[in-house]
């Protein structure tokens, strides 16, 4: 009897919210320790850790916004394309006006506008979010290619240097992170989004408007895309048609690796994207440092991704819900 109780409490712990939150962090720490040992401390040097942080900034920032949409049990596949188009227009605006403030405002404005456009299609025009994000992924990429015509848009090195030295990318990331933590954990917005993800019918019956809060989630996602776009410009100094190519999928990968519930709801947490993006970059960096062939790293990432998803989620009795 006691043995049975022990097993059931262990099972409850593995299915708990706490385990979901702890597993990815524990995995990240374990990764750092293992790679630190295997590389004789080179991996855990200050310089190496700074590189990991810098490389995970874009995915981490955009994924923070993605968490709001994921929480509603929807998937946003077009956030990479939104960031790319926002960054492109922001660069064009800077080159036309020479104003960094206008560039930043444009990036945020475009991010919000594009995500609101996606939200309107789902909320007002009743198109499924899944289809909207898949189409927007292709549409925004095509519009960006049309704008650039196969070329590149660059901002002056002096501007990139100034923004980098003043730590604008860290400030943007920090601001998005802190505001999102507050909104997600301490306001009606976060509670409502999680409630919608847990049970949409129940949320509706308690007066939580799905359409209103989905739009809010998309707006917050748009703000994160805008911030991600600025960080991308600061890091690269230019945007081409191949920039941020894998960001759409990386955001999803980071969120799930970071422990975000794939079904949204109460097991969602906003810093999952940050933990996930740090894990992806740390894994890449560590495997490269110990001499694993670059082409195999992606497969290892895929295997670890699936193992983490399977171990951290409760296996449904039937097949997963038909919404993808």
């Amino acid at each position: 009897m006691t043995e049975k109780k022990k097993v059931s409490s262990l099972k409850r712990f593995f299915e708990s919210r706490l385990f979901n939150q702890l597993l990815p962090i524990a995995f990240l720490i374990l990764l750092c320790i293992v790679f630190g040992i295997l590389t004789d401390g080179r991996f855990t040097s200050l310089n190496s850790l700074k590189i990991i942080l810098d490389q995970s900034l874009i995915v981490g920032t955009v994924a923070i916004g993605g968490a709001f949409i994921f929480a509603t049990s929807n998937t946003a596949l077009s956030m990479g394309a939104t960031s790319l188009l926002s960054a492109t227009v922001a660069c064009i605006v800077y080159n036309a006006t020479g104003s960094p403030v206008l560039m930043i405002v444009t990036a945020f404005g475009m991010g919000i506008l594009l995500m609101v456009f996606s939200a309107v299609l789902s909320t007002l025009l009743n198109v499924r979010v899944l289809f909207v994000t898949v189409i927007m992924m292709a549409l925004f990429a095509a519009v960006q290619q049309s704008l650039l015509g196969g070329g590149t848009v660059a901002v002056p090195f002096a501007l990139v240097n100034d923004l980098t030295n003043s730590g604008v990318h860290y400030i943007l990331f920090g601001a998005v992170f802190v505001v999102s933590i507050i909104l997600f954990n301490f306001t009606e917005i976060g509670r409502s989004l999680k409630m919608i993800g847990t049970n949409r019918v129940c949320a509706d019956m308690t007066g939580i408007s799905y359409k209103k809060f989905l739009t809010i989630a998309f707006i917050l996602g748009g703000i994160a895309c805008g911030a991600g776009a600025i960080i991308a410009v600061i890091r690269a100094g230019s945007i081409s048609t191949t920039s941020l190519a894998s960001l759409n999928m990386d955001v999803m990968l980071a969120l799930v690796l970071g422990g975000m519930s794939i079904f949204g709801g109460s097991k969602s947490f906003v810093y999952a994207g940050v933990v996930g993006s740090l894990t992806v970059v740390a894994l890449n960096q560590g495997l490269l440092m110990i001499g694993v062939d670059a082409s195999y790293i992606q497969a290892i990432r895929g295997i670890i991704f699936l193992i983490l998803v399977v171990t951290s989620q409760k296996r449904p009795k039937g097949l997963p819900a038909p919404e993808g």
Partner: peptide, 27 residues
């Protein structure tokens, strides 16, 4: 087979399997 064993939502599973399958022809 991976879908029915893991029962992970298809889109999420697709990302994981896609990462693995792409490497096989590359390697």
């Amino acid at each position: 087979l991976a879908f029915v064993i893991t029962r992970v939502p298809p889109m999420v599973l697709g990302v994981g399997m896609g990462l693995i399958w792409e490497v096989i022809p590359f390697a």
